[in-house]
Computed example of a mutant assay.
Amino acid sequence: MTTFTSDYRHLIRLSDDTGLFEHARHAVVRRHHGYCTDDVARGLVVVSREPRPSRRLIRLSECYLTFLTHAQDDSGAFRNRLGFDRRWRDHPGLGDWWGRAMWGLGTAAARDASPWIREEALSAFAAGAGRRSSHLRAMAFAGLGAAEVLRAAPDSAVAAALLTDAAEAVGMSAEDPSWPWPQPHLTYANAALAEVLIAAGDLSGDRHLLDRGLRLLTWLCGVQTRDGRFSVVPTAGWRRDGPRDRYDQQPIEVAALADACAAAALATGDPSWLDEVRRAAGWFYGANDANALMWDPVTGGGYDGLTGHGPNLNQGAESTIALISTMQHARTLP
């Protein structure tokens, strides 16, 4: 089987000099859907993680950073949707796209290979770090960006305050060991909630908080594993004591698990978490409920979802970035 390494072909195909297109029909960009801050921020995360980026990837970092700073207003909020005509379709807000933007900016500020990108990203991060969202996942995503900043600049008070508030937003674990999740349902990017607790506990030295995040992640991995493979909660979600659909599974769920398990391995030094990262990579290689390869070796794109009939062959930005992100972790495994 063809091995995925650092394949950015499709991400480059989805990008132009403005940003990153959201959707594709198979591998063909659907320009009429335009761009969104959510996906541009995800793109900035993965390209900033590359320790030795090519000239093309450096150009993507520059493009994505420019998009995010254009989307940000003076209050630190962000617009989300830009049409192909370069007109914004919405007003600045603090939804999930704000959290994603803060995650992208925090990652670029801490890890990007270009010093000027790190500096500009940190400035934009600081401009948004004083805001707070009423949306739980927005706070979790922003907290992960704050954690990136703190790993590079431990004395950043604004990042520390944002990470603390993000962890508090997750809330307390339920008392029922069969459902310790702090909410009565699982929706999307669930592992990000556990990851922000792990990051906050690790960086603050709060062992109780770290252990709580690890317990939630252990449970989340367990309930999403079937026959040794990841079988993640589908787009319909899963409510406690309710029925759970098997499909349509999304790559973002697998990528969120890979991110969180890699963070757990870093925080604890426990190599068993790396087995979960391998399980996540395996999902893309066909170790899933449909025994289906979840990426296209010809284009380098990630398939948009796993249905009961096999992969959704469209290769949009979110799924392609989920693939790249997971394989970034997998390639560092011993």
Rank of each mutant, 00 (worst) to 15 (best):
residue 83 G to K: 08
residue 259 D to V: 11
residue 57 L to E: 12
residue 67 F to D: 10
residue 281 A to P: 12
residue 202 D to Q: 14
residue 166 A to E: 05
residue 200 A to N: 09
residue 108 A to K: 08
residue 173 S to N: 02
residue 334 P to N: 11
residue 306 L to T: 12
residue 326 T to W: 04
residue 169 A to F: 07
residue 33 H to K: 09
residue 149 V to N: 01
residue 322 A to S: 15
residue 312 N to I: 12
residue 128 G to N: 11
residue 199 A to N: 08
residue 242 G to Q: 10
residue 268 T to C: 05
residue 116 W to R: 10
residue 165 D to R: 08
residue 281 A to G: 15
residue 207 R to P: 01
residue 324 I to N: 09
residue 117 I to H: 06
residue 284 F to R: 09
residue 125 F to P: 03
residue 155 D to Y: 00
residue 154 P to A: 06
residue 233 V to F: 11
residue 9 R to K: 13
residue 165 D to F: 00
residue 184 P to R: 10
residue 87 R to I: 03
residue 296 D to I: 04
residue 217 L to Y: 12
residue 109 A to M: 06
residue 227 D to P: 02
residue 147 A to W: 04
residue 113 A to C: 12
residue 155 D to V: 00
residue 157 A to H: 00
residue 250 Q to G: 00
residue 47 V to R: 13
residue 238 W to M: 07
residue 23 H to N: 01
residue 217 L to S: 03
residue 70 H to D: 13
residue 285 Y to M: 15
residue 234 P to K: 07
residue 239 R to D: 13
residue 99 G to A: 10
residue 301 G to Y: 03
residue 197 L to I: 01
residue 1 M to I: 11
residue 161 A to W: 00
residue 241 D to L: 12
residue 330 A to L: 10
residue 328 Q to E: 15
residue 276 E to Q: 13
residue 285 Y to L: 14
residue 314 N to T: 02
residue 1 M to W: 05
residue 64 Y to P: 09
residue 313 L to G: 05
residue 155 D to T: 04
residue 85 D to H: 09
residue 223 V to M: 12
residue 85 D to E: 13
residue 132 R to T: 02
residue 62 E to A: 13
residue 217 L to Q: 04
residue 304 D to V: 06
residue 10 H to W: 04
residue 92 P to A: 07
residue 263 A to V: 07
residue 149 V to F: 00
residue 15 S to G: 11
residue 266 L to A: 15
residue 205 G to Q: 05
residue 115 P to V: 06
residue 18 T to N: 03
residue 66 T to E: 14
residue 139 M to C: 11
residue 212 R to P: 01
residue 128 G to F: 06
residue 187 T to K: 10
residue 10 H to G: 14
residue 279 R to N: 11
residue 37 T to A: 15
residue 285 Y to T: 14
residue 115 P to C: 02
residue 47 V to S: 13
residue 60 L to E: 13
residue 187 T to E: 10
residue 69 T to Q: 05
residue 139 M to K: 02
residue 227 D to T: 10
residue 99 G to T: 02
residue 119 E to A: 15
residue 80 N to Y: 01
residue 167 A to N: 05
residue 306 L to I: 08
residue 34 G to Q: 14
residue 171 G to M: 02
residue 224 Q to S: 15
residue 5 T to H: 15
residue 158 V to H: 04
residue 17 D to H: 13
residue 155 D to C: 00
residue 196 V to A: 03
residue 224 Q to V: 04
residue 38 D to L: 09
residue 297 P to I: 14
residue 160 A to Q: 12
residue 209 L to A: 08
residue 300 G to I: 08
residue 129 A to G: 01
residue 266 L to H: 14
residue 258 A to T: 09
residue 102 M to D: 07
residue 277 V to C: 12
residue 232 V to T: 15
residue 243 P to A: 07
residue 50 E to M: 10
residue 76 G to E: 03
residue 17 D to N: 13
residue 143 G to A: 01
residue 166 A to P: 05
residue 20 L to S: 11
residue 327 M to Q: 13
residue 221 C to A: 12
residue 27 A to F: 09
residue 64 Y to K: 01
residue 3 T to W: 03
residue 192 A to I: 06
residue 316 G to P: 03
residue 209 L to F: 00
residue 11 L to R: 06
residue 271 P to Y: 07
residue 225 T to N: 06
residue 48 S to T: 10
residue 198 I to E: 05
residue 289 D to P: 03
residue 66 T to W: 01
residue 4 F to E: 12
